[in-house]
């Protein structure tokens, strides 16, 4: 290992489409959770008013469905980008099958989750894009989200006139009825909430500890790596 300076170089990690995806996703999830909780257990708002003069629950459900569409299309867009984007956005980073990513996973688990102070840390253990644990958690989250999309559109399909939601109509008979599908949709929402808590916390943790622009990278797209890391790569290439 070369001697470590405190000089950093700026890396462009998150391209514009990735950042747009992230923030659209953020807004859609907040809208979906907020309206979804209201649908699950509507508060007794304006219960004295006449039905003629209000439609808030209908509007609430409309926002939920509209946000659901945006959320889904946004996800499709991100999957597309995982074939088009840079190496940090590539679909490969979500599968921890390479030796390097498995090693990184064990490093992150030891160093960041169990908070061990490891000696002999090498540059390859310091992630520039997603770390291996995070990206793998996104893969699991993605599968969970597919289930959420399927159950959501399955419940919506019956009243839909468009073919797209009807693609999911088979989900209802698969689980035997709306009641169970609705419960699954509800439970997955809580997984999303829990995921979000962990996600936000760990981003703040990394930013606090490493100071490499973890939080701001999702706004500007840049993270920082030590100068030596770039030099080593240069040497290898020469």
């Amino acid at each position: 290992m070369t001697t470590i300076s405190h000089e950093y170089k700026r890396v462009f990690v998150w391209e514009v489409p990735v950042r747009i995806f992230h923030w659209v996703n953020f807004i859609a999830i907040i809208a979906l959770i907020a309206t979804g909780i209201l649908i699950g257990n509507p508060p007794a708002l304006m219960s004295g008013a006449e039905a003629t003069n209000q439609y808030w629950f209908g509007i609430n459900r409309f926002i939920h469905f509209a946000a659901g569409y945006i959320f889904t299309l946004n996800l499709v867009y991100r999957v597309f980008w995982s074939f088009m984007g840079n190496k940090y956005a590539n679909w490969k980073v979500f599968f921890p099958f390479s030796k390097k990513r498995r090693k990184n996973m064990s490093h992150v688990l030891k160093s960041d989750i169990l908070l061990q102070n490891l000696k002999n840390s090498s540059f390859s253990n310091i992630s520039v894009g997603h770390n291996a644990v995070a990206s793998f958690s996104y893969l699991i989250f993605f599968i969970l989200i597919l289930l959420q999309i399927a159950t959501g559109f399955a419940l919506y399909a019956d009243n839909a006139t468009w073919w797209f939601p009807k693609l999911f109509a088979w989900v209802i008979p698969l689980f035997g009825g709306d009641a169970l599908v609705r419960l699954m949709h509800h439970i997955i929402m809580w997984f999303v909430i829990i995921f979000s808590i962990v996600h936000i916390y760990l981003v703040m943790y990394h930013d606090w500890l490493e100071g490499r622009g973890e939080v701001s990278s999702m706004f500007g797209g840049f993270k920082f790596v030590r100068k030596e890391r770039v030099d080593i790569k240069k040497e290898l290439n020469d």
Partner: peptide, 19 residues
């Protein structure tokens, strides 16, 4: 083919949020 909910005469109260 239809949910009871979607053919219910009380449905307007659901959309108005009156429960």
């Amino acid at each position: 083919a239809k949910r009871v909910h979607d053919s219910c005469y009380r449905r307007p109260y659901f959309d108005a949020g009156l429960f």
